Lab assay of single mutants.
Amino acid sequence: LAALHAEGPLAGLPVTRSDARVLIFNEWEERKKSEPWLRLDMSDKAIFRRYPHLR
């Protein structure tokens, strides 16, 4: 499970980098069924690119 911001401008976004990794992994797991070539990237760089508020 990932903790998400409940309200405000960040509502629905992950609270920590660990939470972001959970979301990225879950999405990758779903997408790899139809796109088996996808690589999993959970590096800090990938997290910041996707969720800049975690910098």
Rank of each mutant, 00 (worst) to 15 (best):
W37E: 11
L40V: 05
D44W: 10
F25N: 05
L4K: 07
G8T: 05
M42C: 12
A11F: 12
E27S: 06
S18R: 15
L23F: 05
F48Y: 15
F25I: 12
E27W: 06
M42G: 02
G12Q: 05
L23Q: 05
K33G: 09
E27H: 06
I47S: 00
E35V: 05
L54Q: 00
L10E: 04
R31K: 12
N26P: 01
R31G: 07
P52E: 03
R39M: 14
L10D: 04
V22Q: 13
I47W: 01
S43R: 10
Y51A: 00
L54N: 00
F25A: 07
R21G: 04
P9L: 10
G12H: 05
D41Q: 04
A2L: 13
A11I: 11
P14M: 01
L13W: 05
P9D: 09
A20Y: 01
W28C: 02
R39T: 14
T16F: 04
K45P: 09
M42D: 08
M42S: 05
E29L: 15
L23Y: 05
R50Y: 06
A11V: 11
L4H: 05
Y51D: 00
L54V: 01
H53K: 00
P9V: 09
E35Q: 09
N26C: 12
L38Q: 07
P14D: 01
A46S: 09
D44Y: 09
L40F: 05
Y51W: 15
P36D: 04
K33R: 10
M42P: 02
S43Q: 02
D41V: 04
D41W: 05
N26A: 14
D19N: 03
L4P: 03
L1I: 15
S34T: 15
I47H: 00
L54A: 00
P36K: 07
L23T: 04
K32N: 08
A46F: 11
W28L: 02
V15F: 06
A6I: 12
L1T: 13
F48A: 08
K45D: 15
P36F: 06
W37V: 05
R55H: 08
L13M: 10
M42H: 04
R39P: 13
R17E: 09
S18D: 14
M42V: 13
A11M: 12
R50G: 02
D44A: 09
H5G: 03
D44E: 10
W28Q: 02
V22T: 12
R31F: 06
A11W: 09
V22K: 14
L1A: 14
L23C: 07
I47E: 01
A20D: 00
H5V: 05
L54K: 00
A11D: 06
R55F: 13
A11L: 10
L40H: 02
L10A: 04
S34A: 12
R17C: 14
L23P: 00
K32E: 03
D44M: 11
R17Y: 13
G12T: 04
R39G: 08
S43M: 02
D41F: 06
S18L: 13
R49N: 13
R17D: 07
D41E: 06
F48T: 08
E29Q: 15
I24F: 06
D19V: 03
K45E: 15
S18Q: 15
E29D: 09
E27P: 00
L1G: 11
W37L: 10
P9W: 07
E35M: 08
K33P: 07
R31H: 07
L10R: 04
N26W: 12
R17H: 09
S34F: 13
